[in-house]
């Protein structure tokens, strides 16, 4: 087990290293000179010689005067030490910049996942138990439509219905403008603004419902379920004590995977509702050509993806002793 984890960790390090190399290469291909950008504002106020000196200083400070491999290693080393660079737009270290959006993203995702699991899992179970009834079929069709329709369309529809036709929710943003709420009132206001993004995100819960339904149906087709029924156990006991416990194995993987996903912002939802989260920060930094931020965010997302994979695998192994890691 420990050996396996070590192996996987080593493997993550290699992949992370390779991808950082790749991304750094792409990043360096971008036209534009960040040093020039930094001193551009002073061009008018100082003499050309002074400007050139400032420019050279900026290049030195950003390390642009060194050869590319050196630049790469110093950048990668800095990332490992937690120094993600400096945002040329916000004029802040990236690590400080990421803090507040991260809180917003986590808040939104936690609320979303609570509702997702509270609604999705029971609905999935019910569909599996009532397989091929009208209820099941209609949920299946509804989930199919939910999966097929992209978030930006459902967001437009929900904004139109619940923010414009019946204005019960705010269109976008995170706080009521002009109202300086404090304490609990501020919290309520925050949740109020969160409502529509969460509802729109929940239109995509068809995936979970189908997954739960499928896992439970798989479990229900097993021999031990037949045995349990043959013993004369109550249907409830059969489903929840025998079948569902086994169906939980794949579902746990899902849940654990999403715990890691809490840190990654949903780009489209956050952009649409002006929710100042990680996803919006990524989009904004790309739009403003603030590539230092974009690159750090990218590395963060990659690390998240790799970690999520490892944790899911480990979780399967813990929940189900039959799974052997090698």
């Amino acid at each position: 087990m420990a050996k396996y984890i070590l192996k996987r960790l080593g493997y993550i390090v290699i992949v992370f290293f390779l991808l950082s190399f790749l991304l750094f290469g792409i990043f360096k291909m971008v036209p534009g000179d960040p040093a020039r950008l930094m001193v551009e504002g002073q061009k008018m106020s100082v003499s050309p010689e002074q400007y050139e000196m400032l420019y050279q200083q900026a290049r030195e400070r950003l390390g642009l005067d060194k050869p590319l491999p050196v630049q790469y290693f110093s950048w990668f080393g800095n990332i490992l030490r937690g120094d993600l660079g400096y945002s040329s737009v916000y004029r802040l270290p990236v690590i400080e910049l990421i803090g507040p959006p991260m809180k917003n993203t986590i808040a939104l995702n936690v609320v979303y996942y609570i509702f997702l699991f509270l609604i999705g899992i029971p609905l999935g179970i019910k569909c599996a138990v009532k397989k091929d009834t009208v209820f099941d079929t209609s949920v299946q069709v509804a989930t199919m439509i939910g999966i097929s329709i992209p978030f930006f369309i459902s967001a437009l529809v929900f904004i139109f219905l619940f923010a414009i036709v019946i204005p019960i929710f705010p269109i976008s943003g995170m706080v009521t403008t002009g109202a300086n709420y404090t304490g609990f009132r501020a919290f309520l206001d925050y949740m109020y603004h969160m409502a529509l993004p969460v509802i729109v995100s929940l239109t995509g819960m068809g995936g979970l419902i189908r997954y739960v339904r499928g896992s439970l149906l798989d479990a229900l087709s097993m021999d031990y379920v037949r045995t349990a029924r043959a013993k004369g156990l109550k249907e409830k006991t059969v489903i929840y004590k025998h079948a569902f416990r086994n169906a939980l194995i794949p579902i746990t993987g899902w849940i654990v995977g999403s715990i890691v996903a809490i840190f990654g912002g949903a780009v489209i939802i956050e952009t649409l509702f002006s929710w100042k989260g990680v996803g919006k920060l990524l989009i904004d930094s790309l739009n403003q050509h603030d590539y230092t931020v974009a690159l750090s965010m990218q590395m963060f997302y990659i690390l998240l993806g790799l970690a999520s994979n490892l944790i899911t695998d480990l979780c399967y192994c813990i929940v189900d002793p039959r799974i052997k890691l090698d």
């Binding site: 991808l19 991304l23 792409i26 990654g264 780009v267 489209i268 996803g279 990524l282 989009i283 790309l286 974009a294 690159l295 965010m297 990218q298 997302y301 990659i302 998240l304 993806g305 790799l306 999520s308 994979n309």
Partner: peptide, 12 residues
Amino acid sequence: GSLPFIPLALIL
């Protein structure tokens, strides 16, 4: 497969 798709596609 573990690469986050949308962010990577965006940056590329």
